[in-house]
Design a protein around this nucleic acid. Sequence first.
DNA 1: GTCCATGCAAAGACTTTGCACTGGT
DNA 2: ACCAGTGCAAAGTCTTTGCATGGAC
Lengths: 128, 128
Amino acid sequence: MERNTIQKRQILDVIMNCYTHPTIKELYELVNDKYPNIGQATVYRTINKLVQDDIVIRIDCNDGTHYDYNREHYHFYCLNCGKITDVYLNSNMVDELLSSSKLTEVKRINIVFEGICDNCKKLNKDAC
Amino acid sequence: MERNTIQKRQILDVIMNCYTHPTIKELYELVNDKYPNIGQATVYRTINKLVQDDIVIRIDCNDGTHYDYNREHYHFYCLNCGKITDVYLNSNMVDELLSSSKLTEVKRINIVFEGICDNCKKLNKDAC
DNA sequence: GTCCATGCAAAGACTTTGCACTGGT
DNA sequence: ACCAGTGCAAAGTCTTTGCATGGAC
């Protein structure tokens, strides 16, 4: 039987009230800032459980794994600055994608759009 | 100026003639089986260059990063056995996906369908 | 001949684990 | 009271790096 500990609630609180998409390192720092005395091992163990329980999702990018609260949405990853932003797709779009894949038994689709974000495009026109 | 070394050609040869989607560890083993005396650091350095040069792509999954020769295709990841298989989508499907996302400046889309593969479904009906 | 890439081993970064203790049920 | 979850530190794993040497150009 799984327990609803303070630490688990604290970690979830940080993820749910976080506009970035933190890596495990960043998440640990954020959690520790808000709730000191939480162990690093606890963050690792808890996040893995939250992912297993489908409460949190992993976003796997070139620069490592990021975490996000599990809503029906997808992500854009900036190849220049590494920032991740949310992407929402019409649900019929997702259905079409699924049927186009000809796969059955799909539980989730991970989509990461990679490119240059508006901010980087503005700041550094030639570099991109 | 980038050099076309023996090791680079050997690593590419292994990736191109490999039906699995190896992790870096598996890739190193495959390369070493076929071409001994190749250093681990070389495999790490070379694969990163190949990814930067868009010759090889990363497939980021729950169980880590896998590598594949860069063709226009996507992947299915079995949540049970971890096997990765190729998924091909009509190119107009991808265009629709892009326009649905409302993003501009997208260089690539990474899509990983997650679910249970046919083989696992057969072998273990109740577990899935 | 130049200097980028390699191989090795060591360092560094990341993640898991063992164990005694705490706190949720 | 029981035992899953925690905190710490140590172990284990993964990845990068420094440096001397070798090979591509």
